[in-house]
């Protein structure tokens, strides 16, 4: 146990802020995963690679002297079409198969994407400079990089746009109908094939936004996608499938929990602590389910 955080209480504020900012960004990625998991019943192992590819789009702009923040506009457009392409090539063949098949297929896609990015951009770790500066609070004792604040604001905006789109637009309604009951939707004239393709495209576009934000807040490398996949998977599990508002909350919650675990238990346990929490939540869920099952009996 480390009590540094109590000796310097200002660290609590820093940890909270860092956790929330980190969590919002992860929640955006998880949002795409939840959407596509809910609609298509596919767990996308290549989610992290879509994010990193989105990041490379922003980095590509940066290499040509364009500010990488424009990546949040360009990257989703590019990634939407990449997503549609992946759907047409592979996903449409596994969409109605069992979960294991789709996991294998997306795992294959993730390997392919990693090698492709390695081939095009090389194996070096790269960063795109935003030069956004820093926000200092409490007499400079809490420092928040503006790039992270920018990332959170953009993530929240992207999520709001998506929710509105899902509620108001025709395609959004079709997506929701397909998620509820694909067969019924099909009978009622919804082109589910098109719905699936768009859903996968929208997921890839969200990953594109997140990737562009990661390019200016963290680092890019063809092989660092997996942590993003795992993290978004966890956020979705904790929130519960089909619970989109829960995704934002669980993303931020896990972010804050991780930061505090770092301060209290040590950096080496921060990821372990998050996984432990996941196990506890799953056990609690099971316990609750078992109880309601008993009532039914």
């Amino acid at each position: 146990m480390d009590f540094l955080i109590f000796e310097h209480p200002i660290l609590i504020v820093q940890a909270l802020m860092d956790g929330v900012l980190l969590g919002i960004l992860f929640a955006l990625i998880a949002y795409g995963m939840a959407l596509q998991w809910g609609v298509m019943n596919i767990i996308n192992i290549a989610q992290g690679e879509l994010v990193i590819m989105g990041g490379y789009v922003a980095y590509f702009l940066y290499m040509y002297g364009i500010h990488p923040a424009y990546g949040v506009i360009v990257s989703p457009i590019v990634m939407y079409f990449v997503g549609i392409g992946i759907y047409k090539l592979v996903i449409n063949k596994v969409v109605d198969k069992d979960l294991f098949t789709s996991i294998l297929a997306t795992f294959g896609i993730s390997i392919l994407m990693m090698q492709l990015m390695n081939f095009v951009f090389g194996a070096d770790v790269v960063v795109a400079q935003s030069n956004f500066g820093t926000t200092m609070l409490f007499d400079n004792s809490v420092t928040l990089p503006n790039s992270k604040i920018f990332a959170s604001v953009v993530s929240v905006l992207a999520a709001i746009v998506l929710v509105l789109y899902m509620k108001k637009s025709k395609l959004g309604r079709a997506i929701r109908a397909t998620a509820q009951n694909a067969r019924a939707a099909k009978i009622l004239g919804v082109d589910t094939e098109k719905v699936y393709a768009s859903t996968f495209g929208i997921n890839a576009a969200l990953c594109g936004v997140a990737g562009a934000l990661i390019a200016i807040t963290f680092t890019l490398h063809p092989y660092v996608g997996l942590p993003y996949t795992v993290r978004s998977f966890m956020i979705v599990i904790v929130a519960g499938l089909g619970n989109l508002p829960g995704v934002a909350l669980s993303g931020m919650g896990l972010g804050v929990f991780e930061e505090f675990a770092d301060y209290l238990l040590g950096t080496e346990f921060r990821i372990a602590a998050v996984f432990l929490l996941l196990v506890l939540i799953l056990m609690y869920r099971r316990f609750k389910l078992a109880r309601s099952r008993e009532y039914l009996k």
């Binding site: 860092d18 660092v224 921060r270």
Partner: peptide, 9 residues
Amino acid sequence: PKELNDMAA
């Protein structure tokens, strides 16, 4: 941790 890309803490 190996998968960490944030050193803020």
